[in-house]
Nucleic acid binder design. Sequence first.
DNA 1: TATAATTTTGAAAACGTTTGCAAAAAGGTC
DNA 2: GACCTTTTTGCAAACGTTTTCAAAATTATA
Lengths: 338, 338
Amino acid sequence: MTVDKSIKDVAKAAGVSISTVSRVLNDSQGVREELKKRVLDAVQNLNYHSNAIARALKGMPMKTLGLLIPSIENPFFPSMVRGVQDEAHRNGYNVFLCNTDGLGIVEEAQFKLLLDKKVDGVILVASKYTMRYLKGNLDFPIVMIDRYVDSPNLSYVTVDHTIGVKLALDHLYSLGCKKIAFLGSKLVSSGAKERFQSYKRYLYDSKIKFDESLLVFGEYTYESGIKMAEELLKRKVKFDAILCGNDLIAFGVIETLKRNGINVPKDVSIVGYDDISFSSYHTPKLTTIHQPTYEIGQMSTKILLDIISGVDRRVKHIKIEPSIVIRETTHRIGSVNR
Amino acid sequence: MTVDKSIKDVAKAAGVSISTVSRVLNDSQGVREELKKRVLDAVQNLNYHSNAIARALKGMPMKTLGLLIPSIENPFFPSMVRGVQDEAHRNGYNVFLCNTDGLGIVEEAQFKLLLDKKVDGVILVASKYTMRYLKGNLDFPIVMIDRYVDSPNLSYVTVDHTIGVKLALDHLYSLGCKKIAFLGSKLVSSGAKERFQSYKRYLYDSKIKFDESLLVFGEYTYESGIKMAEELLKRKVKFDAILCGNDLIAFGVIETLKRNGINVPKDVSIVGYDDISFSSYHTPKLTTIHQPTYEIGQMSTKILLDIISGVDRRVKHIKIEPSIVIRETTHRIGSVNR
DNA sequence: TATAATTTTGAAAACGTTTGCAAAAAGGTC
DNA sequence: GACCTTTTTGCAAACGTTTTCAAAATTATA
């Protein structure tokens, strides 16, 4: 029990050569029914498990994926990770999860470690450092997820943030909001950039004047949401709605407004982004842009597995359409004191 | 760039044998300085990376851990996972994350898969199925985390729930609460059992009469919290406080009470369990029992790595002391209408 | 300067598989 | 039954390492 059986033991027990054993375990072609049965029985009796390491050394796939994300503690990622792992497991793959904290050095180090351990492919949330170490590995199976860097050789799957922001602003606009603040993260990721671009574009298209003083940039955290809202209030500028970079920021913003006697949604409407599970547990329940994170994880894994197996090697740039979930933090202007 | 260099290439480039290369890469002992330098240079120039698979085949450690949890989508686990991974990475290890959904079959299947892939050790959240497949692997490095099964051979690290529940009830008792309902998960895990035991014991010790109708059992989810609270209300039994099995249940309970016009904390005090990050973002902020999940993950990994390296093989049963975080969902009885 | 003791080096086996190739067995055909 | 095909089988090499053992080189001793 404690010492591993090898193909050799099976061969001896079945009275055949190791090649025969290997063949029934793999192709299974061109081996007599009787022998096949004898081998299979021996495998059963000895409780033989094939050694994935030895197979990998012969160039067989290790059936292992790498997944690089900023941090599993960021509530945006767990369901995405789950999507990846479910699809992976369904195909007999295991996945190495690595937290990079968005640090280029650890991202690169982890990536190289994964290569050394012969993962068959990698899914990663790209950063501005990504391309540097990816340069030499463009033939290696990789799919980017959520955030990406533009490359004609690399597939990615993310959400169409241009649409996401438009959805949010359409909703706010329809409620009569005209002074819509934007509290988001610094424009470092592809997603943050797209959202801000879309915000500017929308104002322009709607002939709403763009006001620098309605902009605050920080981090994707609750604490940062608090700080950004305080900063906004300090500016004494009027606003009737806030579009937040993500839900955590929105929670922090709502907390700060409440502390300052400003009612959400009566005085100010708030829209979050992501639709993490807590958005519907929050009081008031958060109106937000839903990102189908589980599906993103799942889809990226499907694409990666197709690349690995060679079934479909075309590079795909997929932007899933998000949706808006209208809950309790947005409210029509003017209907306040009715 | 695209084809891997082997130790052979390094040997040729440095003009030495592969044994010498291997030696400088490992022990590094008894090899002339000059040769050592030549080898190291060749490694640099060729951008050689040692093949972890080949090393593992020779019995070297794969520097890989397995981590089996119910689901990364359960907000209790991400920081625990992060604790494990940080400690692992600090020691050059990677970790396979697997979601079992508490299903015995997938738990066992994943465990075996991990063994086939030659992980050096496994950390797992035990279920009632665990012992069955672990039987034959008691000499393999394993540490249980959060939930455990009693075994003299296996280490675990968890929280002392007896103390956790006592902390909660002491607090409630000091506020004057006497009719404390218990809404928790079915008594399937070690943690759930301990908490309920501690609840009963506390009532007994405090001479508070134990009332079956104040008990509801369900799942560790928001939705279940809602259902359990509805069930409790349906019973028309009086209660002045609720101890919840975890924070998610607490959120659901608070939502239900609010819908029914019951104010938290003025009418009823609520205590959660776990202290997930959202507890402090919630309105009202949740009073709860804090489990140091990150530290639990970290500590269990340290123990596992000690077992693997042979530094310390003693089995350890660690119960970390939790703490209570008093926030806004608990309130003194009688001071309501002051 | 020869010899013994020590240090440094390389050849080769081994880890557990897969697979090309040739040999053996089985099946057809006349 | 002899010969030719076809199917089934096993031997051995290979994957990239580590490690044992013996040989070669160096140093110390006389």
